[in-house]
Design a protein around this nucleic acid. Structure first.
Lengths: 223, 223
DNA sequence: GACTCATTCAAGAGAATACTTGATTGATGC
DNA sequence: GCATCAATCAAGTATTCTCTTGAATGAGTC
């Protein structure tokens, strides 16, 4: 039945441990217990998990030797079983942090460097709109669009972009906008459209900034 | 959409990394790459994974920053991206090793302490068999039994034990044996039968040891 | 351009996880 | 015994992962 390859066996156990730590809730539980032993109900409250859910995650952690439990009267007190669990989490976190940094980096490389230089300022866009020289698309969700958008903008949520290409002009310039400087939707839209041969730019920042400048807005409740 | 809680965000990434390392195949891949950069096909052969499967696991590892890939002509050479991945794996392994030890411990407590003291030595069993004072059962698989077994032993694979209780004597002592000292089948069988009121002991060690002592054997090809 | 080779992608079946709900267990106090 | 409280179990659904298959891509060669 079981192949008696000790190395593979260790890998199998290690992998199971990895998966055991491979859930944000369980990491939060570990962090919680790192502060000291607690009964289940208190842990659930602290972490915001439902009681049954917390209990199940704790049992899983216990099965893998990460935490220990002891009954005290009606309550079951959980505590961290092994300092090394924290070391392992720290080792993973260190890599994860690098990943987050690299991710932002990638984002910038992938989108900003391509598009940011050629972004349309809001004043320029206002002029172009007055001249009917551009098609403006709002790539936010329908709800956001309904709550307020640039006058004359076409709402094409990013997810629907591929399906609604027919609505876009092949020759006239397109300007896409989204939620703001930290929102990547319009970068994404521009990249997709450019790949299909459209002439497209992004608007600098997003709708909130447009509105904040006191420019004309359509839709939404009068604010 | 995303709650901007930096701590939770780090946990989420860390958890994903944990799950990324939470698969025996991926740990084997990491071990393989720890020895040096290689193209996919070579990695697949080394690890025994199918090509597509290896490729997919490698891509996942790459997505989480554990490995890097570089195209060289037709081939894609993968290599370990970060020493810290090995540290993380080592941290997990250390805990896993303890778990394996604890697991064996549990096994021993659960089975050995109950049964080992009262195990029947091979010489005593031989004497009892000569006197027809015991029923001997072989709880290994049918294949193993056919390849060789104790003379007069009844083959009842552990899985079939519950269904074949009728074949066993209620009063005569039963002796169960299996593959050897590291095989728990006979422990399991003894525990099950004892729970049902049978008089049962295990034979020390297992069939290979019996045979190695030059004792009489039935079945199998003449060796 | 056609052809080959290494790798990746895409889709689908099957298995494993996660979280919820409501029932159950275990310890305590009346 | 009965009621109460903390925790666990059990079952069901929704989601995610895994691995296989066969097609598609990208780079090099003829």
């Amino acid at each position: 039945m079981a192949r008696h390859n000790p190395k593979r066996e260790l890998f199998a156990w290690t992998a199971e441990l990895g998966r055991c730590l491979g859930h944000a809730h369980r990491l939060v539980l570990i962090e919680c217990l790192a502060q000291g032993p607690r009964p289940v109900e208190s842990i659930a409250a602290f972490t915001g998990l439902s009681l049954a859910n917390a209990s199940q995650h704790l049992q899983l952690l216990r099965r893998f030797g990460c935490v220990e439990a002891e009954r005290q009267g009606k309550q079951v007190i959980y505590r961290l079983a092994d300092e090394r669990v924290l070391h392992a989490v720290a080792a993973l976190s260190a890599i994860a942090e690098t990943n987050i940094a690299a991710f932002s980096e990638t984002m910038r490389k992938h989108f900003l460097s391509l598009d940011d230089k050629e972004a349309v300022s809001r004043s320029e866009l206002a002029r172009l709109m007055k001249e009917n020289a551009v098609t403006v698309i709002d790539v936010r969700s329908n709800e956001e669009f309904t709550a307020g958008h640039l006058p004359g903008a076409l709402n094409i949520p990013i997810a629907a972009l591929k399906l609604r290409l027919a609505e876009l002009p092949k020759r006239m310039e397109i300007v896409a906008y989204c939620r703001g400087p930290y929102c990547i939707l319009s970068f994404e839209a521009a990249a997709q459209l450019r790949a299909r041969g459209y002439r497209v730019r992004r608007m600098q920042d997003g709708f909130p900034q447009w509105k904040a400048e006191g420019r004309k807005v359509a839709g939404g409740v009068a604010a």
